[in-house]
């Protein structure tokens, strides 16, 4: 599968749709798992990006400063509608969460305790972790086309997840061989 990232068979979303969609992503993500939710909506449901385009954008969003998911919203928004699109997506992603977080913190500073939802949130977190694993499995199946990508995946996981090496150190090691492996062979450039 070599999706050309410029093909978009779907109609370009309006500003309102961008804002609404990212609002939907944000609200669905209680307990965490925002990346998995983004993929679920942007790639699977809306088909605004291919899996490869989404994944590579996600890694760039991680390298760049800023919250990964806000960066992703800027990326998707600007792809379709330039600066206005980036603002719309960003606004959609953050507006309702800001209201909710404010309400929760007002309650917290008033009662001096985390609202009595600990157990529920623990459950939600377990579900959100599951969503993240399931995203790794689904996308992993598509990009594991041979031994080299499999090695790259495992190396990245072990260094970042198990050994807790910082992102930049890990990428400095795995990105060069990954680019070398993926460089288009002659044909089109």
């Amino acid at each position: 599968m070599i999706p050309t990232s410029t093909t978009s068979s779907v109609p370009e979303p309006s500003l309102a749709e961008l804002a609404w969609t990212f609002n939907h992503i944000a609200l669905a993500s209680f307990g965490g798992g925002l990346s998995a939710w983004s993929r679920e909506v942007v790639v699977v449901e809306k088909k605004w990006m291919s899996d490869e385009e989404f994944l590579s954008a996600l890694t760039m969003c991680r390298i760049l400063p800023g919250a990964n998911q806000i960066n992703m919203a800027v990326f998707v928004g600007s792809k379709f509608r330039g600066m206005a699109g980036a603002c719309a997506a960003c606004f959609g992603l953050t507006f309702m969460p800001v209201v909710i977080v404010l309400a929760m913190s007002v309650a917290y500073f008033k009662f001096n305790d985390v609202p009595a939802m600990q157990n529920t949130l623990k459950g939600a977190a377990a579900g959100a972790v599951a969503l993240t694993f399931s995203m790794a499995i689904k996308t992993g199946r598509k990009c594991l086309t041979g031994v080299i990508p499999a090695l790259l995946l495992v190396a990245t996981f072990v260094m970042n997840g198990v050994l807790h090496w910082p992102l930049f150190g890990v990428l400095a090691i795995v990105a060069p061989p990954a680019l070398l492996w993926a460089w288009p062979k002659g044909a089109r450039s």
Binding site: S56, M60, T139, L153, N160, V174, A175
Partner: peptide, 28 residues
Amino acid sequence: ADSPLRHAIERGFAPLTVGLVLASGYVM
């Protein structure tokens, strides 16, 4: 959109990103 570097990043970074996603699930 058509530069070879972008194609290489899209294809080459996919397994790295999946590794990072897996790592964040593991850490979470």
